[in-house]
C-alpha cells in the first residue's frame, strides 16, 4: 500500500497499540445515543482523518479517544503514553507567554528533567523560537495555532487528537500549517486522529479518511465510509490536481 512507502517512519512506529473503539455506545443524558456499537481503529503511527457535517459527533468521538468522555458501553483503547489534544481555537492561556503556555502540560504533569529544553525544542519545531516571550495576544491566528501545536508536542505524545485545528485560519496560513503538521508527524511519529470538514485537507494529510454520518431520526451516528489514501509521501499541494485524487475527493463528498 502506498502509505507504507514511508518506510523510514515505519521502522520507528510506536510499539504500542493504535486507537481502537470497540462497540462503543455514547450519548448525552436524556437523548438517544449518539453512537451505538461504534467500532473503528487507527493504526499506530498513521494519520486518520475524520470528516463529516458539523454537529455529527466528530468532536465527541475525539473526546472519547482523548479520555475526556467515557463511553456508556464498549471500550476505547488508546496508545500507551501521552495524549495531546489540539483544539479548534488555539486555547492558549492569555496571561502566559508563549513559552509558559507550551510549558503548561509539563507543569501539570510534574515532569522531571529539563523542561526548558523541551519547551525550546517544541517551539523550534513549529518555528516560534523568536516568539517565546511574547503574550498570545501579540501573535497572529496562525502563530497562535503554531504555539498550540508546540504545546501538544512538548510531552512527546504517542497520540495526537486534532479538532479542526486549521479550520479557522485563512487559506495561506492553513497551507503553511499543513506543512508544519506533516513535518512534525515525520519527526515525531505520533498516531493522529484529525477531525476536519475540509475534504482536500483530509486527503492531503491522511493515510485514511473516515466519513461520519450524522445521527438522524433517533438512529445513531455512524462511520459511513472508510477510504485509504494511497499517495506517496512527502505530499505536496500539487497532488490536489491529480485526477485520481479528484475522484477520491468526489467519492468522499458523495458519502457525506
Amino acid at each position: 500500500m502506498a502509505w507504507r512507502q514511508r518506510s523510514t517512519v515505519a521502522d520507528g512506529l510506536p510499539a504500542g497499540r493504535g486507537v481502537r473503539f470497540e462497540a462503543v455506545r455514547f450519548g448525552w443524558p436524556g437523548e438517544p445515543p449518539l453512537f451505538d456499537e461504534l467500532s473503528l481503529s487507527v493504526e499506530p503511527g498513521a494519520i486518520v482523518a475524520l470528516v463529516g457535517a458539523s454537529g455529527c459527533g466528530k468532536s465527541t468521538l475525539l473526546r472519547l479517544a482523548a479520555g475526556l468522555l467515557t463511553p456508556i458501553l464498549g471500550r476505547v483503547e488508546a496508545p500507551d503514553g501521552e495524549r495531546a489534544f489540539v483544539f479548534q481555537r488555539p486555547t492558549l492561556l492569555p496571561w502566559r507567554t508563549v513559552a509558559a503556555n507550551v510549558r503548561l502540560p509539563l507543569e501539570l504533569g510534574e515532569a522531571e528533567g529539563d523542561t526548558d529544553a523541551a519547551v525550546a525544542s517544541a517551539l523550534a519545531k513549529v518555528g516560534l523560537s523568536g516568539d517565546a516571550d511574547k503574550l498570545p495576544r501579540a501573535l497572529s491566528g496562525g502563530m497562535q495555532m503554531r504555539a498550540s501545536l508546540a504545546r501538544a508536542l512538548v510531552t512527546r505524545p504517542s497520540l495526537m487528537l486534532l479538532d479542526e485545528p486549521f479550520g479557522a485560519l485563512d487559506a495561506l496560513t492553513r497551507r503553511s500549517l499543513h506543512a508544519v503538521f506533516l513535518d512534525l508527524w515525520r519527526q515525531e511519529r505520533f498516531t493522529a486522529l484529525l477531525v476536519t470538514h475540509d475534504i482536500d485537507e483530509a486527503v492531503l494529510l491522511a493515510d485514511r479518511v473516515l466519513v461520519m454520518r450524522s445521527a438522524t431520526d433517533g438512529a445513531p451516528a455512524l462511520i459511513g465510509g472508510d477510504q485509504p489514501v494511497r499517495l506517496p509521501r512527502p505530499r505536496s499541494r500539487e497532488l490536489l490536481h491529480d485526477p485520481a485524487l479528484g475522484a477520491l475527493s468526489r467519492s468522499l463528498e458523495a458519502m457525506l
Binding site: 473526546r63 475526556l68 489534544f85 483544539f87 481555537r89 486555547t91 503548561l104 501539570l108 504533569g109
Partner: peptide
C-alpha cells in the same frame, strides 16, 4: 474560562 481550557487542563491530569 472556556470549556476548551478546562478540557486542556483535565487532559493533562489537573
Amino acid at each position: 474560562v472556556s470549556e476548551e481550557q478546562v478540557e486542556l487542563l483535565t487532559l493533562y491530569g489537573a
